[in-house]
């Protein structure tokens, strides 16, 4: 069965506290963290972008999987902050990790679920035996307009998954998607920062699509909440995944371990995929994982995953999500603004 033969993540070293951002804009710094469920967020260094984050995550995944990069038949990078508007990130990744030139490659964009869309595409190619192994990456250096609510959560990080059939660490039994045309969040071509529908991003967008995606997956797999040990939802902030979990009836303890958003913020295309990696870092063989990624615009990708015995041997080979979460250096707003090109005079 198609599964995950290796995975790797990368989170930049820098963090800014959401309370520091709040104070700059005259908001109550103490209230913002608990209110949003995001206490600090990752900030990419001035020389980091989606290509560099993707390469680091992919190198970790390949090291864990102990595969020959020449066996990778497809490289798909999902992001909404590709460094080039035209020119793929995937080619940079493929060249840097040592892929063959005889493979296919493309960049994906579907707001925060571009990475899971890439996983689904890779699964199809593997299942149809068109390729041996597919590399699917979700990675972002998300931007929030200075002073906008998004600025508290828009973060940087990525996860890379190697999809294959041989000796998987976790099998993916099923995936389904729920897709509508719902403009809750967007960035027009040429704009530096995204715009969003404020409270519209909640009910008709995130909650409807995640809820419907989950419902479809339960129906298709004939399972219920009780059949799963861990739940992972897209994490635009710390509140939404908890709220949607409550709606679906997920016990708190089954969701808790995936909530990386509190420490690193919303890594957009990396968000649910890093959450899943955190579960794969700790779950026992036989554990079942239920993941729903969400992308504005809007759609959800839901996955049912079972952890296999092989996962035990893969541990300790590459840094875990927690290793990255714990490796951190705080920056102030001025440094954050410099690194994130919010100081326009610097070019």
């Amino acid at each position: 069965m198609v599964g995950i033969v290796g995975f790797g993540v990368y989170v930049p070293r820098y963090r800014i506290k959401t309370s520091d951002i709040a104070e700059l804009w005259g908001e109550d710094g103490e209230k913002i963290g608990p209110g949003l469920g995001v206490f600090e967020k990752s900030v990419p260094g001035p020389d980091e972008d989606v290509a560099t984050i993707s390469v680091e995550a992919a190198r970790n995944a390949i090291k864990m999987a102990k595969i020959d990069p020449l066996d990778i038949g497809a490289v798909y990078v999902g992001s909404e902050s590709h460094p080039y508007a035209v020119k793929p990130t995937g080619t940079i990744v493929a060249e840097a990790v040592g892929c063959s030139y005889n493979m296919t490659c493309a960049d994906f964009e579907f707001a925060c679920k571009a990475g899971t869309a890439a996983m689904q595409a890779a699964m199809g190619l593997v299942a149809s035996k068109m390729i041996k192994i597919g590399l699917a990456i979700g990675s972002d250096t998300a931007q929030g307009r200075p002073g906008d609510a998004l600025e508290y959560s828009a973060a940087a990080g990525g996860a890379a998954y190697l999809i294959g059939q041989k000796n998987p660490l976790a099998t993916i039994e099923e995936t389904v998607s729920f897709t509508t045309d719902t403009p809750d969040f967007w960035r027009r071509e040429g704009e530096d920062f995204p715009s969003h529908g404020a409270r519209f991003t909640g009910e008709p967008a995130y909650f409807r699509h995640v809820g419907e995606g989950a419902k479809l997956l339960f129906a298709k797999t004939k399972t219920t909440v009780d059949d799963y040990d861990y739940f992972v939802f897209h994490m635009p902030n710390g509140k939404f995944p908890v709220a949607v979990g409550k709606q679906i009836g997920v016990p708190k303890e089954k969701l808790e371990d995936s909530l990386v958003v509190r420490q690193i913020g919303n890594t957009y295309s990396g968000s649910a995929m890093i959450g899943l990696a955190r579960i794969l870092d700790i779950a026992k063989p036989g554990s079942k994982i239920f993941m729903v990624a969400y992308g504005s615009g809007a759609g959800s990708d839901a996955f049912s995953i079972t952890v296999e015995d092989a996962i035990l041997e893969s541990r300790g080979m590459v840094p875990t999500v927690d290793d990255y979460i714990q490796r951190k250096t705080y920056v102030n707003y001025a440094t954050y603004a410099k690194y994130r090109r919010k100081i326009k005079a610097l070019g």
Partner: peptide, 29 residues
Amino acid sequence: ACFRKIKEFGQGGIIAYGYKFEPTMKVTG
């Protein structure tokens, strides 16, 4: 060795990526 942006040839120009180095530690494996 790690992978970073080395140089941008202006804002609209190409981005050169490549090696930089970082101290070995747990997060570098």
